[in-house]
Design a protein around this nucleic acid. Structure first.
Lengths: 144, 144
DNA sequence: GCTTGTTAGTTACAAATTCAACTATTAGGG
DNA sequence: CCCTAATAGTTGAATTTGTAACTAACAAGC
């Protein structure tokens, strides 16, 4: 029985990352849930379309590392909320180009503003070097 | 319409943390799922009991910031797998003291060893100072 | 132009999580 | 004591997610 009493789950990196991710997303989650009735999958799709312009569901999946079923459902929900429209691509009619509507862009702009200030608030306790290191480390761990 | 085209979701801290958390837990998740048929909630409970000794479900909840229904179900599953036993606390019979069985401690020891090497592997690309900073930052963000 | 294989996206069903209501037990007045 | 409030833990129903099978469209080889 090789016990390792010195190993503490609370310093296990995946655990720590998960705790930090959950805690840090709470306040923002509240915002898009209460105000727009959206799920995390939905605002992610919205953000990607808002930031990178119209694209297919598949392209979002590659960028955001989201499974296609999640995207399919998020897109359906956003379509019903009239935040985006679909358009079959004529050159290959399996693809659908997703485009934000005016309403969708407005929600995107609002959430962007909120996310921006919220992000700054989260990062405030750290120095510029610490912030840079933290982001680089996370990107590396996320294999982005 | 106050667009903020410079705000990128991919550097939004909660998003980054979530991506890193998901990616970094993949390989370990595979291990406890395949080998022991456990869920994340279950190994978390197991780890807490293994590391900090017998305690009540409530105490685990406070430490691990897990909701009591998650814990209740995880404990039921671990009990069925014969990894722990319950015992009503005589001084207050609402509480149940949870104790790992020999089998439970064995699984804990095995997963500890795996987690230990896995953690080291994840941290390997970073210098000692970077590792320390990363952990402090995450603990702070997780409000631990 | 058929067969086979591949890709985009959807849907159905199973598994997991959340939320709210529930039981059982204790604590604190009056 | 009895009534109310609070706490530990469980359970059931509704959401949400994951897995796998599905449709539709295209592509390549023959």
């Amino acid at each position: 029985m090789t016990d390792q009493p010195d190993f503490d789950i609370r310093s296990f990196l995946p655990y720590l990352l998960n705790q930090a991710a959950e805690e840090s997303s709470l306040a923002f989650q509240h915002h898009y849930k209460q105000r727009y009735g959206m799920l995390r999958t939905e605002w992610r799709v919205l953000f990607h379309l808002g930031r990178y312009g119209a694209m297919t569901a598949n392209a979002i999946g590659t960028r955001a590392k989201m499974h296609k079923t999640k995207i399919s459902r998020a897109v359906a929900a956003l379509e019903q909320k009239r935040y985006l429209t679909r358009q079959k691509v004529e050159s290959d009619r399996r693809h659908e180009k997703l485009t934000l509507t005016a309403a969708g862009r407005k929600v995107y702009a609002d959430l962007c503003a909120v996310a921006g200030t919220y992000d700054a608030q989260l990062l405030a306790p750290f120095s510029a070097e610490e912030q840079a290191l933290l982001k680089r480390a996370l990107e590396r761990l996320a294999k982005l």
